[in-house]
Design a protein around this nucleic acid. Sequence first.
DNA 1: CGACAGGTTGAGTGAGCTCAAGTCGGGTGG
DNA 2: CCACCCGACTTGAGCTCACTCAACCTGTCG
Lengths: 232, 232
Amino acid sequence: MLRLSGQTAHPAARYSHTSLKFRKGEIIYAQGDPATDWYQVESGTVRTCFLYRDGHRQLTGFYYSGDVFGIDAETYRSSAEAVTAVTLTRCSKSMGSAIASNQIPEASSLLQSALNHAQSCISLLGRRTANERVAAFLLATAWRIGGSDSLNLPMTRADIADHLGLTIHTVSRTLSELARREIIGLNGPQSITIRNPHLLRLLADGEGRDTSYEQIDRIGALAMAPATALGR
Amino acid sequence: MLRLSGQTAHPAARYSHTSLKFRKGEIIYAQGDPATDWYQVESGTVRTCFLYRDGHRQLTGFYYSGDVFGIDAETYRSSAEAVTAVTLTRCSKSMGSAIASNQIPEASSLLQSALNHAQSCISLLGRRTANERVAAFLLATAWRIGGSDSLNLPMTRADIADHLGLTIHTVSRTLSELARREIIGLNGPQSITIRNPHLLRLLADGEGRDTSYEQIDRIGALAMAPATALGR
DNA sequence: CGACAGGTTGAGTGAGCTCAAGTCGGGTGG
DNA sequence: CCACCCGACTTGAGCTCACTCAACCTGTCG
């Protein structure tokens, strides 16, 4: 969510770093492996997955260009996998010491970044309905990578579902419903445009709980009106 | 979950610290306040709450004697409240600098502790059913404070519910059901004994999903048998 | 062209929510 | 000492939203 320390920071650059490439779907490290390295994304998208004993998984985060992941104490609590083809910079922790003992100058920044990611994940999972979770996820993702209203979701529906604690069916249905109400646009499964950010924000914040679709759409239209009038 | 750095460590002891008392229910700091201090629990229990725009809350953690909380970057992302009467040690961050710039030696340890708490929270919310969440919560709490099989839950059902993303009704029903099956014992709402930790672990790990109660109870009985035979 | 992965959509079910009533224990005031 | 209240908890009944099961569509790759 939060960039590490501004646009230009490259914390990985200061250490013995190795550039690596992974193909789509490849595993970068596995849950339980000794946490010897941390990584920074150069290009592409990475997901971290926590696997439960019964086989189902909880995606704890998506990492885009500039993001840092793999900041764990002893062993990795989540595995990391390439969502798309990725290039990474790998940084060995062992050259200084464990990251927990702060012999690495940016240790605090890296941990802070990891903590922010975890809190964002909690913020999504704490929401109550599928609408709220999907809406909040779209806004968070748009804010992180899109910048503008059009965004390309690199991950599959299954990834989104396992991130939000839903099924792919519910995610798909919810997105279709949002598109039907013209809150978002769907140009193919991966390409999404946010048409009504204001209304999406209301949905994410739970304003649609005991309110009918017609009511919330009216509220959204009212909220949009000044912005639209101002914008053109 | 994880103690900061062993039983005897008192990271708060090394700084300008102030001892504070709060009564049950009192607010220690509010969400959005500038994060100027962090705290260590001397006695009692503290909860941290993330409030959503619609008024519902997500408890992001419970903190017991020895635990540290309030490790945020700029402003507190959650409020902190006294679950019981508590005594705390408050430590000012401003004496060095912001915690993110690692001028405070234990900054990394504190952040690591906060990260562990966040990951435990995700691990609970990532579970699928009420049974799994409640079982996992009981085990985590017992491991943290109980030590033995008997534990005193300092928080209310509402606190548990808002921590697990359930309602108080579902929490209450689930606990009653666990008691009815003699997996736990209930001596009053706050006092719980774990009678069958093995079976509780199976439930927490989702082994009861597509299995009937009778089947899982039988599995649990089998799993218990050797341990019982060995133990006495 | 077939195989397959990813995605969408429908129908029916069920776990957990909502609404509602009732219990229990502790505190307070008459 | 008892009546009363209040907050916390429990439990029942019904409903709803998300899951399950299933079918089908689409694009891609060999």
